[in-house]
Design a protein around this nucleic acid. Structure first.
Lengths: 149, 149
DNA sequence: GATGGGGCTTCCCACGATGGTAAGGTCAAG
DNA sequence: CTTGACCTTACCATCGTGGGAAGCCCCATC
């Protein structure tokens, strides 16, 4: 099995397989006389493992750990679970951040007329975003007239 | 005002101010005889605008657009709103993706004993993640009865 | 005037994970 | 033997940010 076949079988591009090889995420593939990398079912399974882990958002570093646990028949599931839970926590934190961004923007967008007039609470927020009155947007937004541009 | 003062006043690092300068996000700063960049309140306000927009997750490209609208007194708020709404949609899409990852991992984690035994539904999922039975994690994984969660 | 510390300048490198491309070797089918 | 598909390495780009080196400048203190 050469790299292209392994790529199709695993869902990982040949490019990325070489990259994983290069950074040592997977053991260096054996080579043919013509210096072609060759793969067996075992390597393809590793690549699918990596692919799936990437799909779940694990970083390369985490995947390195997961792979070593996966290869270790005697690993305690506790360690795997710890990695997963840490990643879930990181995802949740990032989600919360993005949710906050989206909520703020939804609110500003809701307050923006979205017509031909130039007055815009979104730009007003970006201009003076550090001011302590984010919740009080009525139609009087125009009266804040602090545009000094 | 030199770049360090502008950085402190805007919350943008000097490094990033130079970068924004370089990529043309802001107009090239005027220079002193000693080739030092100099800033006025106006530029600091632009930098704060950028900072705030970055906090809300806008890309540089979007910020370029937002800045040009901000500078244009006659802009229609419609255009600003369109950018904001598009960004909200992108955020929501990304949040949904990450939420799906987190939910899957939470489920797997919940099913993992997390003890000294090597059997682990998380690794099992990563191994055969592409198989068509994602919900069917048989209880036979833990043949000795469950102790935790 | 000299000296020293801190700030400024440009330039280069790094990240993470991926894609692109170019130049050259190889394999298999016609 | 030719052709086209495939492999190899090597380099560049992304995006936004940080780090650092080498060298110049400003100001205060001696």
């Amino acid at each position: 099995m050469n790299i292209g076949q392994a790529a199709r079988a695993s869902g990982v591009t040949a490019k990325m397989i070489r990259y994983y090889d290069e950074i040592g995420l997977v053991a260096p593939a054996s080579r043919t006389d013509a210096n072609y990398r060759e793969y067996e079912t075992r390597e393809v399974n590793e690549l699918r493992f990596i692919k799936r882990a990437r799909t779940l958002g694990f970083s390369m570093e985490e995947i390195t750990l997961l792979l070593s646990l996966w290869r270790d028949r005697g690993r305690p599931s506790r360690e795997v679970k710890a990695i997963a839970e840490k990643h879930v926590a990181a995802l949740d934190a990032r989600i919360a951040e993005m949710q906050a961004m989206a909520d703020t923007l939804r609110h500003l967008s809701h307050c923006c007329a979205g017509d031909e007039r130039p007055d815009c609470p979104i730009l007003a927020d970006l201009t003076g975003g550090s001011e302590p009155t984010p919740a009080r947007h009525q139609r009087t937004v125009q009266s804040r007239g602090r545009q000094r541009d």
